[in-house]
Design a binder for these strands. Structure first.
Lengths: 130, 130
DNA sequence: ATAGGGATTCCAGCTACTGGAAGGTCAAGG
DNA sequence: CCTTGACCTTCCAGTAGCTGGAATCCCTAT
C-alpha cells in the first residue's frame, strides 16, 4: 500500500504520515523504487494515531499508547493512567478558558461599541479599573 | 528605565520584551552603550501587552489593540469587535474541549485499570467499538 | 515521446516564546 | 587597578505538530 492509499484510509495527510515516520512513530518498509510500503499493521497503527490525536493526545502520549497497544501483556492501568492524565489537562484547560470567557464577556458587555473612543476594554487593558 | 526594570514592572520576561521589539510591537530608544531605554509610555504599552496576552489575545490581536489604544479617535466598536471575535474563539475552543472531556471521561470510566491487558481505551483507539 | 499523477527529499515557516552561548557594561569592594 | 557579579547585548537553536513549496523521480497511459 502506497502512502496516498494509507493516507486516505487513515484520514491523515501524507505529509503527516511522513512526519510520523521522521519522529519514529511508524517505519514502513520500502519498495525497490524507494516508495514507502504500508502493510495492514501499519495502516492500523495510523488509524490508531489519527484517533488518538483527534482525542487530543500529545505525540508523546501517542508514542506511549502505541507501545501499550502493541504490548499484549500491557496492564490496562497503564493505559488508563495516560488517559486520565490527559483528561486532567483537558479539564484544566477548560477551567482556564472558562475564566477567560467570563472576563471577556464582562468586557464585551460593558463596551457600548459605537463610534466614540471611550472604551472599558481599553481601560481594562491599560490597568484603569472600571 | 532598563529592560530588567520594565520587565519586573510589567510582569513580562526580558526575553519576551526583546521579542516584542523584534516583531515591531514596541521600539524603545537606546542609550549610548546600546542598552534599551524605556520611558513611561513604553512601560504602559508593555503592561497593556501583558494584560492582553494574559486574556489570550493573539499577538496580531495585540498589535491591533495597541494601535487602537494609541488612536485617540478610535471607535470603541472596533475594540469591541476584536474582543468579541476572540471571545468567539474561546467559546469554540471550550466546546471542543468539553466534547473531548466527555469522550475521555467515558473511556476512563470504562477501563477497569488493573494489570490485565484488556482495555476499552485501546479498543476505542483501534476502532473496535465497545 | 509525453503528459499526468503520484512519489521522493529537503528547506522554510507557522505561534509565541524560551534557553543558552559568547561577549560588552557598570557599580562596588579590595 | 582589578576583579566580581549583576546586568545588558546579539545570535542561534529548539519547543509542538505539522504544512507548504521546490526540485526531482517514478509509473502508467496515450
Amino acid at each position: 500500500m502506497n502512502i496516498g492509499m494509507v493516507a486516505s484510509e487513515s484520514g491523515l495527510p501524507a505529509k503527516t504520515i511522513r512526519y510520523y515516520e521522521d519522529i519514529g512513530l511508524i517505519t514502513p518498509s520500502r519498495l525497490e523504487n524507494g516508495y514507502r510500503s504500508y502493510n495492514q499493521q501499519d495502516a492500523e497503527k495510523l488509524r490508531f494515531l489519527q484517533r488518538a490525536r483527534s482525542l487530543g493526545f500529545s505525540i508523546e502520549d501517542c508514542r506511549k499508547l502505541l507501545s501499550l497497544y502493541e504490548d499484549k501483556n500491557r496492564a490496562s492501568a497503564d493505559v488508563k493512567a495516560v488517559a486520565r492524565k490527559h483528561l486532567g489537562k483537558v479539564e484544566q484547560k477548560i477551567r482556564e478558558l472558562e475564566s477567560l470567557r467570563g472576563t471577556l464577556n464582562e468586557l464585551v458587555k460593558c463596551c457600548h461599541g459605537d463610534d466614540r473612543p471611550d472604551c472599558p476594554i481599553i481601560n481594562d487593558l491599560t490597568g484603569k479599573e472600571a
